[in-house]
Structures are given as C-alpha cells and as structure tokens.
Design a protein around this nucleic acid. Structure first.
Lengths: 177, 177
DNA sequence: CCCTTCATATATAGGCCCGATATATCGTTC
DNA sequence: GAACGATATATCGGGCCTATATATGAAGGG
C-alpha cells in the first residue's frame, strides 16, 4: 500500500493540507502503526490531484506560502474502497533493539542495561500517549488505540520480567580499559 | 541501521552466502523483526568486501553460479560493535490491517470479518513457528523468540476478545448489489 | 529586549531499499 | 514430461525517507 492510498485515508476524516496529513503520521491517529513523511506526502498529493482523486484549493496567506487544502473526490473515495478490498500487506515489525539483543553476549553489561531501559521508557511513553481517548476518535481509532495498549503492555511486562536473561549473558564490566 | 550492518550481524553466526543471509531474513532468526532482500543484500556484500569488513571466497560449482562465501574480518567485527554502541532507531510497527480498521464503518461486515480472520490466522502461524526453540539458538535468539511469543499472544487475545467492536460498526450486508 | 527555538507551510535532491525480473540447473511432485 | 520449488547471483525501476532550503510569527529564556 502506497502513500497515495494512505493520503486518501487521511482525507476521509476531512479536508487537510499536506502539513496536517504529515502530522497525522507523526503524532496523530496514524502514528502508532504507519509512517509517511513530507518526501512522499507532497508528491503523492500532486499525483492524486492529477488523477482526480482529490481536489486542491489554494488559500492565499500573507507572508506565508499558500495553504493548499485537499479534499477527497467521489472517485477518490471509491479508489480507497477498492484498495481496502485488495489483499493487505501483512503486519510488519522492525526492531533494531532485538537485533542488538542477539549480540548481548558481545556487549558490555552496562550497554545492554541502557538498551533495555531506553526501550522500556519509549514504550511507557507510548502507553501514556495512548491511554486517554480523544473525544473525536472514531470507533476504528479507538480500537487501534486499545490494540496498541494491549501490545505495549505485554511488551513492557515481558521486558521487565525477562531482562535479566540477556543482562546475565552480557560481558562483565571491564575494570581496565 | 543499514543493510550492511545487518549483514555484519548475520555473519557473526558464521560464514554464509548472500543466498543464506537472505534466508535468515525470510525464514530464519531475523525474520520476526527485520527485513532485507536480495536487492539490498548483494550490493551490501559487495560494499562490505570493498571496505575490508568481510572477505569473500568463491567456491566454484559445476553448472551453477560460483558460490560466494563471506566471512567477517576483525575490522568488520569492530564495525558491528561500534554500530551497536550508536543510538538505535526506535522499534517500528506497520499495520495495513489497523489502517483498514479505521474505515470499518465504511466496509461491508463480511470484509471486516475476513480481515480479522486473516490477521488471526497469520499471527497463530507465527506463534506456532516461534513456539519450539531451535537447538542451536543463541540466548539472544531465544529471548527474541519469547518476546515475540508474548507480543503475538497478547495480540491474538485482544483481537479475539474485541473483534466484535469493529464488526458491529461495519456496514450491514447488502442484499442487493 | 534580543535570541533561540518551535510551529506553520511547501518543496526537492540524494541515496537507500523493495519487488520484480533474468539466468541456469536439479530434484520432486503431478 | 510438465510444472514447480530450491539453489545461487545480480540488476533495474520505482518508491520512500532524511536532510535541506525558504520564509515568518509566536513564545519563552536570559
């Protein structure tokens, strides 16, 4: 699924600028399970406009670049619907943390501890972000939020209960350099 | 973290060909939390050879392309160690399934049910794959495997217990096309 | 009161990476 | 015997991320 399709999805929730769509991926409702950035969003919106899947009205602003507000067309809505009928890519999880863990026996114990602490902190922050529902969350967003909470909670529990396993196999602290 | 670094990591477990490294990402110990494919692995190995981080010995084969077996050099091992001291990228999760769920209210109920069923089946297959430890697993691999099990189990539980939430908001089955 | 930082807002260039494809052969299954 | 999958390397096209450029107002710290 390409960024163009993700942008169509973003616009289902109302008209938006490229800047606002980017925020949806950075902090907003998409941030927990999708990503896309300026380098793909702006070209995607141009392509979508060319194909008639979105419309663009430029709102002139003084001393700022024109704000380009995009809205979904009927054709765009249909196109999203079709994309959601296609086979979806399987969920994908990428973790450099687990990659590093594979080499725990080659790393100093302090480093392994730091890695676990950082991972735990990051996940706890995510949990805090996701704990309070937003008023205007759609039921789908609410489901995704709770799904995320369940997964992060399980991850935190596992890490806290099993971190000793990898910390034990790490290399002893060296007294001399 | 680039594919070159991931290849260095793969070679810590012993010498290997590009083909075998690819398998580590496709079915092997890396498959649950990393990905890389031929299009990046082969060029990476060439670059690593040029930089002296790995060595390559060609094993001639009859009626087959030469098998190129790569091994880590001392320089390569140090390079991996340094990479593991750098700040690691945060874990990333990408789910087209959750994207689709955001639009559950626009989809026919049968489609939503299919999506959930497929997701559950995929995760249960993962769990089965990960349940039995391999003899020659390193402790790090074992940890990663158990971590994965904990997360997938929690995901499955959540989905089974909450699927009704999104199935209820889906569009009623249409009797007429 | 100034300076830095952050937020708003669009856009592109460089480089990395995935997916598909090409080539060649053998073993297994239908 | 036909089709398919595994073994094995390699490249091309296109998509995407990171960093950067440009411009300004608001807010906060010193």
């Amino acid at each position: 699924m390409q960024v163009t399709t993700l942008c169509l999805g973003a616009l289902v929730f109302g008209e938006a600028t490229g800047y606002e769509i980017n925020k949806m991926f950075e902090d907003g409702p998409f941030s927990h399970f999708l990503d896309a950035s300026y380098g793909s969003i702006y070209p995607a919106l141009t392509r979508l406009t060319d194909e008639g899947l979105v419309t663009c009205k430029a709102e002139p602003q003084e001393k700022r670049p024109d704000k380009k507000v995009y809205s979904l067309t009927e054709k765009g809505r249909r196109s999203l619907g079709e994309a959601l009928q296609q086979t979806l890519a399987p969920d994908k999880f990428r973790s450099e943390f687990l990659f590093a863990v594979l080499f725990a026996h080659l790393l100093p114990r302090s480093r392994v501890r730091t890695l676990v602490d950082q991972r735990l902190a990051a996940m706890k922050e995510k949990v805090e972000q996701m704990t309070d529902p937003d008023e205007d969350d759609t039921p789908g967003m609410d489901f995704a939020r709770q799904y995320g909470l369940a997964v992060y909670t399980a991850s935190i529990d596992f890490l806290e209960n099993n971190r000793h396993l990898i910390e034990e196999i790490a290399t002893e602290e060296e007294v001399h350099v």
